[in-house]
Each structure stands twice: as C-alpha cells, then as structure tokens.
Simulated scan of single mutants.
Amino acid sequence: MSATPPDSAESALPHPVRLRTLIDEISQLTLHVQELSRMAEEARELYERGVLPAPPDPRELVDQVENYRQQLEAAIVHIFEQVFGPRTDTIERQMSMRLIAEIGPEAFVQKVLWGEEISDIALTIALERMIPSLEQLVERYPSAFLSQANSLLNQFKAG
C-alpha cells in the first residue's frame, strides 16, 4: 500500500518532463513578448522622429503584444494547475493572478524570485513549490527575466 494517499498534494505533483516542457513554452512566449515590446518601442521612436511613416493601424502591434502576453499568462496558469492543482479559490492563486494581471508575467516571476518588499517575501513563501521551476526558467532564458541587468551590462559594454 502506498504511503501517500492518491488525493494528497504530493501525488498531484506533475511529471518533471511535462513541467519542463511547460516551462520551455512559457520561456518562448516570454521572449516573443519582449521582442515585440522592443520592436514597438523602436518603431514608436522612429515614428516620432519622422524617420518612418506610422503604420495604417498601430493598434495591430499592440494587439500582437497583448496576444502573446495572454498566451504567457495562460501558460503560467497551466503551471499553477500542474504544481498546485486546479483549485482557483486559494489565496496564493488569487493573489498571483491579480498580480500577473497588474504587472505582467515577467515582473511577477522577478517579484517571486527577487522581491524585497514584505508582500514579495510572503508571495515567495506561498509559492515556494514553484521556485525551482521559476529558477530553471530564468537560467535557461536570462534575457527574458533579467532585462534590467542586461540593459546595464550593454551600457557598460558600449561605454
């Protein structure tokens, strides 16, 4: 007889290979969102300087960025379900989803891993089981989650 009941939290842990696949998908979506955001900023600067004419409908690019963000959020929700189960009424899940909606998925991951405010620390403690997966995500795609550090490093390289 198994020491872990089939309905326990431990038996609900996802298979490591499936979780890695989900993390890879989130990483790819994050990179797409950041690339589109960078492109949108460059285009805005060119339009403002008059170098390029504005596109017929500039909302298309914004819609693309928003679409990728929604896909990334959906992937994070899926990881929540894999790690914590399908319940949406937990305080951890509700707090996380509200925060992702407010600040975006990239900033959410940064807050969980490196936040210094008391609310960030509480979030990190609540999501402790996700930390190894989030750390792997950052290690695999550091440019997606370390954009501020990369920006400073690029300034030093150029100077």
Rank of each mutant, 00 (worst) to 15 (best):
P132C: 10
Q71D: 13
E60M: 10
G115F: 02
F80L: 06
V77R: 06
H15T: 08
I118R: 15
G50C: 06
M39W: 11
S8P: 10
T30M: 02
L123Y: 03
E45N: 09
I91T: 08
T90C: 06
H32F: 09
F145H: 01
Y47S: 01
L134R: 00
L99A: 03
L61Y: 04
S11A: 12
F156T: 15
L13F: 07
A54H: 13
E135P: 12
E117V: 10
E73M: 08
E60T: 15
A75E: 02
L113C: 06
F108K: 01
E66C: 15
Y141W: 10
I91A: 13
P53F: 10
L31A: 05
S147L: 02
L19D: 01
V112D: 00
L137G: 00
A74C: 08
Q148N: 14
A12N: 07
P55I: 10
S133P: 04
E66K: 14
E92C: 08
I23M: 09
R69N: 10
S151D: 13
V33C: 07
A9Y: 07
L46V: 03
L19R: 03
E135N: 12
M39G: 11
E135Y: 04
N150G: 06
N154P: 10
E81S: 02
L137N: 00
R18L: 12
K157L: 13
V62W: 15
A43E: 08
L36T: 12
L127F: 03
Q110C: 07
A75N: 05
L36K: 06
I79H: 04
I103K: 05
V51I: 14
E25D: 14
E106C: 11
M130F: 10
R129M: 11
D57P: 01
Q28A: 09
D120Q: 05
E41T: 12
D63N: 14
A40I: 04
S27N: 14
Q28E: 10
G159P: 01
I23F: 06
V17R: 08
L13M: 05
N150M: 09
M1L: 08
A74P: 04
R38Q: 11
I121E: 13
Q28V: 12
S2T: 10
T88R: 10
V109P: 00
E128Y: 10
L127I: 02
R87M: 09
I26V: 08
S8F: 11
R38P: 00
P6R: 15
Q136P: 05
Q70S: 15
Y141S: 11
I125E: 12
A149T: 15
R38I: 09
D24P: 03
Q70H: 15
G104F: 04
Q110T: 07
V112W: 00
Q70P: 03
D89C: 05
L134N: 00
N67F: 14
A101R: 14
A74R: 15
A158E: 08
F80Y: 04
H15V: 05
M39A: 12
R49A: 07
G104V: 01
A12D: 07
P105F: 09
D24W: 09
